[in-house]
Simulated scan of single mutants.
Amino acid sequence: MAPTLFFEALPLSVKIGTGARERSRPQTVLVSGECRLERQERGNDLLSKTVDYDRLLREIRSCVEPTEFSLLERLGDHIVDRIMEGFPGVEAVTLTLWKEPAPLPFPVGRVGVIVSETRASWSGTSTPHS
């Protein structure tokens, strides 16, 4: 069995934007994701043999909140890197990221990006915008 861990609308406070003015204060970015886990023994009931979603979500929050980004795409890559580095049981990650509210001069439900990566094609860590 290869389970998939998911989470929805994790709020992050992030300095993000294409200009210094937009990055001058944190904005709310919501992240939803799916992490396909490595094959597990059927009937597993041990946290030590799976991915602890509490730890995963805390890692995501701690890796982005002290950092600045220009684009949601780069933020997504940064989160993927942290997940792949810190959680070897994750085989693939798909994240959906959007700002809340969308910084547009007209109403829209959500607009954002989806980033996906597999362990087999992941090339390692890239550095955030400083």
Rank of each mutant, 00 (worst) to 15 (best):
E65R: 05
R74T: 14
V90G: 11
V29Y: 00
Q27A: 08
A20L: 12
D54I: 14
D54S: 14
T67Q: 14
L104N: 04
S121G: 12
K99V: 06
L71K: 02
Q40C: 06
T94C: 10
S116H: 07
V14E: 07
E38V: 13
T94R: 12
P88N: 10
W98Y: 04
S32L: 10
T125D: 15
R61G: 09
P88K: 06
A9K: 06
E59R: 08
E22L: 00
V51W: 09
P26H: 03
Y53S: 15
L97A: 04
F6L: 12
S130L: 08
F6V: 15
L46P: 11
E34V: 02
L97E: 06
A102T: 06
R58E: 15
V113C: 02
T4D: 10
E65F: 05
T50S: 11
V64T: 10
V108L: 06
D45R: 09
A20D: 13
L56K: 03
A2S: 12
L47T: 01
M84Y: 01
T127E: 14
I114M: 13
L104T: 03
E65D: 09
D52R: 01
R61V: 12
E85C: 13
T28L: 10
P128K: 07
C35T: 01
E85K: 08
P3W: 01
R74M: 11
G43L: 06
I83Q: 10
I83R: 02
L71D: 07
R23M: 11
R82N: 07
F69H: 00
L10D: 08
M1E: 15
A92I: 00
F7W: 00
A92W: 00
S116C: 03
S126F: 07
R82D: 04
L72A: 11
S130R: 02
R21C: 09
G124T: 02
E38K: 03
A120W: 05
A102R: 00
G33E: 12
S130I: 05
E100N: 01
A102F: 01
P101E: 05
G89V: 05
R61N: 09
L37V: 14
R74D: 13
A92F: 01
K49S: 14
P26N: 04
T67G: 11
P107D: 15
F87V: 10
S116F: 00
E91C: 11
E117A: 11
P26G: 07
S62L: 08
T118A: 11
E100T: 04
K99D: 10
L72G: 08
